[in-house]
């Protein structure tokens, strides 16, 4: 009821501009000087050979991601929320796996996540600017601005975005208090663990894989582990024909 009186008063009173004191944006320090991981272009290389060799893979990458970011496990596949998940190779690389390279690769379930495209279709269609590319290539979500229109989900050719059809909190077995949950009505996705990079830590999935199948680094740094892997090995990306320029490479 007080809201009514506030609204009424707002119509009568001249109010100070809301963002008057925010006119100038100052250059700010990073969280801890020297600690944050910075890159010209973040990229991930998944060594599929190690994934295939690990016949007893306990799915640590996806588990770590879910627990780190409070990703709910909703039984209903129509409502499921995916950041990093595992998908059969034939779904990851439709038309890419020929009769020579296919076989086991097409059947086995491999890690899939947001490709953090250099030319991301999702950010182009977002009407509020809630999702955008950072200068270092990470495609991030600002859930505060998400209006839940799901254009980005329609645009993403990789199924890397999920909508919260319901409150995710009841579906969390354990809550990591250092990372927010999301709420009903917003889209979410993998963020290449930008919050961990800011504290100088690699992405949770990279850290969790005991077979060291995932590498993370700066594509523009010739000495980075991803650059070395890509230089010396044959790699493919998901749906390269779409021109999205994914930053997740699969060494096969």
């Amino acid at each position: 009821m007080l809201k009514l009186s506030l609204l009424a008063a707002a119509g009568l009173a001249r109010t100070r501009p809301l963002f008057a004191s925010l006119a100038s944006v100052r250059p700010e320090d990073v969280l801890e000087p020297g600690a944050a991981l910075k890159a010209g272009r973040w990229a991930m290389v998944i060594d599929v050979r190690k994934c295939l060799a690990a016949t007893d893979c306990p799915d640590d990458c996806a588990r770590a991601c879910r627990s780190e970011h409070n990703v709910p496990e909703i039984g209903d596949t129509r409502h499921e929320v995916k950041w990093l998940w595992r998908e059969p190779g034939e779904h990851l690389f439709p038309g890419e796996l020929d009769q020579f390279r296919g076989g086991e690769l097409s059947r086995r379930r491999l890690p899939a996540l947001c490709n953090h495209c250099a030319n991301p279709p999702c950010t182009r269609v977002c009407p509020t600017g809630a999702t955008f590319s950072r200068p270092d290539g990470i495609v991030v979500m600002d859930p505060h601005r998400c209006i839940g229109c799901r254009f980005c989900m329609a645009a993403c050719p990789y199924g890397s975005r999920s909508f919260n059809w319901e409150d995710p909190r009841p579906h969390l077995k354990a809550v990591n208090p250092d990372y927010p949950t999301r709420t009903k009505g917003v889209v979410e996705k993998c963020t290449f663990c930008d919050e961990r990079l800011a504290k100088g830590r690699p992405p949770a999935c990279v850290e969790a894989c005991k077979y060291k199948a995932m590498s993370f680094g700066d594509l523009k740094d010739a000495k980075s582990p991803v650059a070395a892997l890509l230089r010396d090995n044959y790699s493919i990306r998901r749906k390269p024909e779409l021109g999205t320029q994914p930053a997740v490479y699969y060494v096969i």
């Binding site: 700010e28 320090d29 600002d142």
Partner: peptide, 22 residues
């Protein structure tokens, strides 16, 4: 100013990757 601070902090962290307040 707490509300302006929260808005500014939110945008700084989420959109500018600027995480330290002096």
């Amino acid at each position: 100013e707490h509300m302006r601070m929260l808005v500014r902090w939110r945008d700084a962290v989420v959109r500018e990757d600027s995480r330290t307040y002096v």
